[in-house]
Design a protein around this nucleic acid. Structure first.
Ligand SMILES: NC(=O)c1ccc[n+]([C@@H]2O[C@H](COP(=O)([O-])OP(=O)(O)OC[C@H]3O[C@@H](n4cnc5c(N)ncnc54)[C@H](O)[C@@H]3O)[C@@H](O)[C@H]2O)c1
Ligand SMILES: NC(=O)c1ccc[n+]([C@@H]2O[C@H](COP(=O)([O-])OP(=O)(O)OC[C@H]3O[C@@H](n4cnc5c(N)ncnc54)[C@H](O)[C@@H]3O)[C@@H](O)[C@H]2O)c1
Lengths: 227, 227
DNA sequence: CTGCATTGGAGTACACGTGCACAAGCGCCT
DNA sequence: AGGCGCTTGTGCACGTGTACTCCAATGCAG
């Protein structure tokens, strides 16, 4: 006899596209809850996040049947289920390697702790920076790069953030993984190679701008033709 | 008689998925050029960026026939063609609204100018910040938020970056568009609504972490089952 | 100049993700 | 108690994007 769906995390594979949208639903639901809403229809929620209601319902149905036909979804309950599915009900310790412009901005950002992420380590090789205390909720001291392995092992860190210059990124990545990290968030503008089983998400702000520039150029081209 | 393909930007629609990969190819080619390579085969380049060679070739063939059979692609030439397609051969002025942790990091980042992006405006309502001079290549003075429309119009800005708190993002977005901006890069954790014809790319760092946490939780779940 | 090995480009089959439309189910009102 | 309207959940068809296969074009060696 299978467990009721509400009592387990979905074992069926959730499409990557859906996974990417779940945090967006989460955000919108938090906003709704703060506004005091108790229930929400798929139509409303879909409009808030900019997707079609059919897609939203299909996404949610992959996690389980958490809605009530004729009524909609109970905000608190759905919020909890998505949080659980995303692993937001537990605490994720993370380290940031490279405390320059970007690493500093991340460390100062207060929005991570509310979603269950806790910065337990800041690493940088620059002696000028080491020893500095940075943080939004609570201060974390910047430690020398040599202590990377210690920090990761001690706190059981599974998620690492790379905010170093590009030339150092692969080496840092290798060390993180060797120390036990299994998910990498990479800001350096290059493709880091990782062994199977390790997840990587690269965020390249320059790349995003280039995509925008491409579309902008297309718009300009179209206008030229039309005139 | 149609123009030879090499003399025009591709008029056939380029798939969004391909557009997203072009900057990655661009990056890899720059690295290859710096290393002194003159030609590169589809196999090599594909390995460098982590895609299959077939996909790479199909992507490139959408832009034109820039390769030589039996040899590969000439690095400089291909680089130029991709740059042209992406609109990197021209200069894109951009404004950043909100000079906090993140806006400051972006303004201090030197990697944009080399790809044709030039920061011409930094806007912030905080009088403490206004007047400050920030920049990597050349300094830009932070101006009061009221002058947003002036800056955009004067410099003919088409791309705007939103790095304000979430509650201010939509208002800022509306003002940018009203002033003439047609592409938005948004860092605030919400979905901004824009009229048709305006492109938006949202980068939510918290969202990326949540996706990683999801996969991490999945891995943990699998291990539990196995033990 | 010829033959051969190499490599891009086009064509084809497949998988994934999306949108549509409808049946199933719940609550409310009579 | 029963029917009615509302919203969910889902099967199905479509389109887009991806992986694979084949072939001809091309450079190079002899
Ligand atoms: N700042 C931005 O807005 C921005 C935008 C796009 C991409 N990036 C990328 O993010 C990364 C960081 O950018 P940044 O502006 O913070 O750079 P930064 O130069 O300000 O900071 C880099 C930090 O890494 C440290 N570092 C140097 N060598 C290291 C090594 N071998 N191991 C570990 N740490 C080392 C430095 O001491 C420094 O503190 C870069 O790869 C950059 O390309 C940044
Ligand atoms: N810093 C990060 O690492 C990080 C990570 C993820 C998301 N974000 C998001 O990026 C945005 C900026 O983050 P931050 O850390 O730089 O915040 P911040 O508070 O440091 O900076 C925000 C800046 O916006 C300015 N501002 C306030 N109200 C404004 C208004 N009405 N119009 C224009 N400007 C206004 C403030 O004066 C301040 O300088 C936020 O939405 C945040 O959620 C930041």
């Amino acid at each position: 006899m299978p467990l009721p769906r509400s009592e387990r995390t979905a074992t069926t594979a959730v499409p990557e596209a859906t996974v990417a949208r779940l945090p967006v639903y989460h955000r919108a639901l938090v906003a709704l809850a703060e506004r005091g809403a108790t229930t929400v229809s798929s139509e409303e929620l879909a409009a808030a996040v900019g997707v079609t209601s059919a897609k939203l319902r299909k996404d949610l149905s992959l996690l389980g049947s958490y809605g009530t036909r004729g009524v909609g979804y109970e905000v608190d309950y759905l919020l909890y289920q998505i949080s659980r599915e995303l692993g937001l009900t537990q605490d994720w310790p993370l380290v940031i390697v490279g405390v320059g412009n970007l690493g500093r901005a991340l460390a100062n950002y207060g929005g991570f702790s509310s979603r269950g992420f806790r910065i337990v380590g800041l690493l940088d090789p620059d002696p000028e920076i080491v020893g500095e205390k940075i943080g939004a909720d609570f201060l974390v001291e910047v430690r020398p790069l040599d202590e990377l392995e210690d920090v990761v092992t001690e706190a059981g860190v599974l998620i690492g953030v790379i905010a170093t210059p590009a030339h150092a990124a692969q080496a840092v990545c290798d060390r993180l993984i060797a120390a036990g990290v299994r998910s990498i968030m990479n800001f350096a503008p290059l493709v880091v190679a990782v062994p199977p089983g390790v997840s990587v998400r690269s965020v390249d702000l320059g790349l995003e701008l280039q995509v925008l520039a491409f579309h902008e150029q297309r718009k300009l081209g179209r206008e030229e033709v039309r005139s």
